[in-house]
Simulated assay, not measured.
Amino acid sequence: MEENRWQSVVDNLKEGDYVFIQFGHNDEVPTKKSYTTEADFQANLIRFITETRAKKATPVLITPVARRKFDDAGKIEGTHPVYSELVRNVAANQNTLLIDLDTQSQQLLQQFGVENSKLLFLQLAPGEHPNYPAGKEDNTHFSELGARRMAEIVLANIKSLKLDLADRIVTPETAK
């Protein structure tokens, strides 16, 4: 909002467009510049929904995607419980479509397990990548595989929500 990025989205919206709204990762961290209080976070989501609908476009709320965090017993731990719940509540109160990416990405991480889930994130050994000569252990940002798996979750939800958009998504094998 402060960087005025939302306004350019609204200004370019057309009837029939979809707006996928996903925030929370940085908004919930009090030490980050982008920290947003719970009340402001909800107000912003409602504003995005209202302004999207005013342009006859369809808003879709998405909970924050899970970070890779397991307890000592190997059980995935939620890292966005408060802000994910805020998104769910706003979706319910505003009768807005919801993709619960937090829950579904946690399920995926649990399926992969403690060690294999590292494949989904930016986990690099020293010398493995020129941008990270000392290596990198990042449990927030995805590898290409992780990004693709999260995108697959969103795509599955687009289809299960029966959005018209689903009919326009093709795989390379069916693209003409």
Rank of each mutant, 00 (worst) to 15 (best):
D40T: 14
R67I: 09
N12H: 11
N157H: 15
P130M: 01
A43Y: 08
E144W: 12
T96R: 09
A151P: 08
K136G: 04
L97A: 15
Q110F: 10
A147L: 05
N95P: 05
R168C: 02
F121W: 11
A125V: 01
F23V: 10
L97Q: 09
N116M: 10
M150W: 09
R148N: 11
L155F: 13
Y132M: 01
L161Q: 12
R53M: 07
F41H: 06
L86P: 00
H25S: 10
W6L: 11
L13A: 03
S160N: 14
A57I: 05
T52N: 10
V87P: 10
Q107G: 15
I46G: 01
L61F: 09
D17R: 04
H25A: 15
D27L: 04
D102S: 15
R168I: 00
E38H: 12
E51C: 02
H129E: 03
L45P: 03
V9R: 01
I158N: 10
K55W: 12
F70R: 07
E51D: 05
A73P: 06
M150P: 03
E51I: 01
S8G: 05
Q106D: 12
Y18T: 07
L163H: 04
N95I: 02
T103L: 15
I76V: 14
A91S: 15
A57D: 04
F121T: 02
P81H: 06
L161D: 12
D11E: 13
Q123C: 04
N95L: 02
T79I: 02
M150A: 14
N93V: 00
K162A: 11
L161P: 03
Q123G: 06
T79F: 01
L155A: 15
P133M: 00
E15W: 01
N157F: 01
L163K: 03
A147H: 08
E173P: 04
I49Y: 05
R67S: 09
M1R: 12
L98I: 09
T58Q: 13
L98N: 03
V87E: 08
Q7Y: 00
T140K: 04
L145W: 10
K55G: 07
R68F: 05
P59V: 12
